[in-house]
Design a protein around this nucleic acid. Structure first.
Length: 769
DNA sequence: CGACACGAAACC
DNA sequence: GGTTTCGTGTCG
């Protein structure tokens, strides 16, 4: 018996010798299955296979063949589990059926026998007729375990040969768990014999190439699947062919890059030095003797550590060239096409705005700052901070609340992530490769923007996810008054179908979201978690049934409707998430807006295709919630489940005139409205305008829009008597549009009636204090 | 990302 | 050979 180096193989082989003086190695396959049920069910088959195996190789003393046949669905689950289990290591995976080829964790010492075992599940296919042939003609081959690597992988191919295994410990990567079961004919055997043997015994990995190495997975008939890490905890499953193509593209890109680099390089191999033009005013200038770099120079008594040119002498032309060369899409932008002489001419006029934004000029500005202000560094830091703030400040306003600070922290973190993981939130209009990486973005038609969030299904429940995502959205997305509709739904929108014609370069169509100063988001964590949690879990379960091979996608849809279009039209409703595959194939790029969606149970049945009638109250609300989350609600309205159970629609924007307003929807779809815990009186205008029981989602949306129509001058909100008091003391007039004036009037009644005078003008109520 | 440090090319 | 300063790497 011989034990092979465990480290070298990444696993241990137990090799035993039974007959003859010559040591022959046999592969010992650990009989321990990982999926006992499957193995038991396949027991008969296993015995047959083992018999055949033994006939082929009678020298084998111990031979355990584990034949794993599992439904594709289960394989998927295994695959996912495997991914999670092995997420810290490099994951190698071939096709779904190669799942059983994964190495299990090494076992501890095996019962004091001194031998260790490893679990290696190998697919063995032996043709019956061949096997019988071999009965008479024993193969003189021994088995060998071939380290099987994908061509694309950067590791080396290794074989376990009888005579060179000593080298293996040095050659084999420790964590490489892809192996081929291979047979090695004894020396002297003809090539044909080998071929014949190979054909008799197809391995789980494939054939041999000329060097005796395993052919890459791609060369087999079975399509390989590769798990590829995107970011953080994200993995995508994709076929190896695509991976190969991508890697080829990457290779090409690298080659082009290298070629360009070589062109830039001087004969010595170092990058060619850029030459100053020698003509521009900067080049003609003398050392200022004041800047950091001048002060660093020996002639100015410096230590000569910085070794940089005087900031005032940095060549404008070179810097400009440098800038444009670094500018992405410069041709499209148009700035880069500006003739050099123009730049130069402008420079000669002394115009400072033409100074290229390079580190040199930043340095120059820094120097100027240092010169101008004593606290230069502090100022620079402040400016940098402000610059960062501006970027996010476009999304965020500048209030000084505690929430704000926390929010800023979150945003800063997010910004960092955004910078390091630019593909995380792709906002692209380009069509995606059908089988490509699955961080996809939908089509951007007109003003329709979709933000696709790819989230790790293992870490966020849909509840948490929706809340957090919504909170983010409320802070991040632009709010053009009531023009922008922010979807509060988290919806799977399947990737668009492949383009009919080669799509134009998508880069031109990529539009960054123009973000605007935003208001404070209202934390909604308290809502929706307290009540109906069980139902939430149920939902999640249901959603998960729709997990595809490519992952689970939550899509946040942001719609920027045409200002002219009627806002009360019902927004997009995406296909239900449970039918991802089908939806992906039948998805229409232009999502048609249905007239309305009925809230009756039949409608839900149609949408969800499940059993509805026996659903409890909360269940019904949950369905309503899910539908609401799939559609676009008026800006910053969020639907959550709360205790009761009841469904609550909350206005999450602090700046909204409807902040602190909650629409409570009961399980029978009746609703009432509260403003800052005060119930709106039954006599309220809103109740008269709208049916007390919601029959359609469109009614709910109309209700929200009606409530949103409130306009208030002077920035006072009128949800409470305190606000009115405040407005009153400020001596301002309040312009309140219907139907909210009734609500206001109600509040006023509660507070005091004597001070106010009101009159109706053109449907607008003017209240004067 | 900016500041800093430093090797080495380019220039004088 | 000395000086200048570009390109690049490292660090916070």
């Amino acid at each position: 018996m011989e034990q092979l180096n465990e480290l070298g193989l990444g696993a241990r082989l137990e090799v035993e010798e039974e007959t003859g003086c010559r040591e022959e190695e046999m592969l010992c396959l650990n009989p321990k299955p990982t999926r006992e049920d499957v193995v038991v069910s396949m027991e008969t088959r296993r015995v047959v296979e083992e018999e055949q195996w033994r006939r082929l190789f009678p020298d084998i003393r111990k031979c355990s063949v584990v034949i794993v046949r599992s439904p594709a669905e289960q394989l998927k689950v295994w695959n996912l589990r495997g991914t999670q289990r092995r997420s810290s290591k490099r994951v190698r995976s071939r096709d779904l059926t190669s799942n059983w080829d994964w190495m299990e964790p090494l076992e501890p010492e095996n019962g004091g026998s001194g031998a260790k075992r490893f679990v290696k599940k190998v697919e063995v296919k032996i043709a019956a007729e061949r096997a019988s042939e071999d009965e008479t003609r024993k193969p003189k081959s021994t088995l060998r375990l071939t380290h099987c690597l994908e061509a694309a992988s950067d590791s080396t191919h290794c074989h376990l040969h009888n005579n060179d295994r000593d080298d293996l410990s040095n050659e084999l990567p420790q964590r490489d768990h892809n192996y081929c079961l291979d047979s090695n004919p004894p020396e002297g055997n003809s090539q044909s014999e080998e071929t014949s043997l190979m054909s008799r015994l197809p391995s789980s990995c494939g054939h041999k190439d000329g060097d005796g190495c395993c052919l890459p997975a791609e060369k087999k008939n079975v399509p390989s699947m590769v798990l590829r890490k995107l970011t953080g905890d994200q993995w995508i499953l994709r076929s190896a062919t695509i991976k190969k193509e991508e890697e080829e593209e990457e290779k090409e890109a690298v080659q082009i890059k290298n070629q360009k680099r070589r062109e830039e390089l001087s004969p010595s191999g170092r990058k060619r030095r850029r030459q100053a033009c020698g003509k521009c005013p900067a080049c003609l200038r003398k050392n200022c003797g004041k800047c950091t770099f001048c002060l660093d120079m020996r002639k100015f008594g410096g230590p000569c550590r910085l070794k940089q040119k005087c900031v005032m002498r940095r060549c404008v032309v070179v810097n400009a060239r440098n800038k444009w060369s670094k500018l992405p899409n410069r041709i499209q932008v148009g700035e880069g096409t500006e003739p050099l002489d123009q730049i130069q001419a402008r420079e000669e006029t002394g115009s400072t705005d033409a100074q290229p934004e390079s580190s040199h000029w930043k340095g120059w500005r820094r120097w100027r700052h240092e010169r101008d202000s004593a606290g230069g560094k502090e100022e620079v830091r402040k400016k940098r901070w402000m610059r960062r703030r501006r970027r996010w400040g476009q999304r965020r306003g500048a209030t000084e609340s505690k929430i704000r600070k926390e929010w800023d922290g979150l945003l800063m973190k997010e910004e960092e992530e955004e910078e390091t993981q630019p593909s995380q939130f792709p906002i692209s209009t380009g069509p995606s490769v059908p089988d490509g990486p699955s961080v996809l973005s939908g089509p951007l038609t007109g003003t329709h923007v979709q933000l696709n969030l790819t989230l790790d299904t293992g870490h966020l429940s849909s509840n948490i996810l929706s809340d957090s995502a919504l909170t983010c959205l409320s802070g991040l997305l632009p709010q053009e008054g009531s023009v922008l509709h922010v979807s509060t739904g988290l919806t799977f929108i399947p990737p668009p179908p492949p383009p009919l014609s080669p799509a134009p370069h998508s880069a031109a169509a990529v539009q960054p979201l123009q973000l605007k100063e935003e208001e404070e988001p209202v934390g909604i964590e308290l809502y929706g978690r307290s009540g109906g949690f069980g139902e939430q879990e149920k939902t999640e379960q249901e959603v998960r049934t729709g997990i595809s091979e490519t992952g689970k996608y939550y899509e946040v849809e942001v719609e920027l409707p045409d200002p002219d279009c009627d806002q009360s039209t019902l927004p997009t409703v995406s296909p239900p998430p449970s039918d991802i595959t089908q939806a992906a194939s039948t998805c229409d790029i232009t999502y048609k807006r249905p007239e309305f969606i009925s809230l009756n149970p039949e409608c839900f049945s149609l949408l969800r295709g499940g059993v509805r009638n026996a659903a409890p109250d909360g269940w019904s609300l949950l369905r309503l919630l899910k539908m609401l989350r799939r559609m676009v609600l008026p800006a910053h309205w969020v639907a959550v489940l709360a205790e009761g159970p009841e469904l609550q629609l909350l206005q999450c924007s602090r700046l909204s005139s409807m902040a602190d307003t909650i629409i409570h929807v009961q399980s029978d779809h009746s609703f009432h409205i509260s403003v800052q815990t005060r119930l709106l009186p039954d006599s309220h205008h809103v109740y008269k305008e709208h049916a007390h029981r919601l029959a359609h989602l469109s009614q709910l949306v109309t209700l929200l829009l009606d409530l949103e129509r409130l306009t208030i001058c002077q920035g006072f909100r009128v949800q409470s008597p305190a606000c009115l008091q405040q407005a009153r003391s400020a001596g301002c007039h309040l312009l309140v549009a219907p139907p909210f004036h009734t609500c206001l009037a109600c509040l006023l009644e509660e507070e005091s009636e004597e001070d106010e005078e009101s009159e109706e003008r053109d449907g607008t109520m003017v209240i004067e204090f």
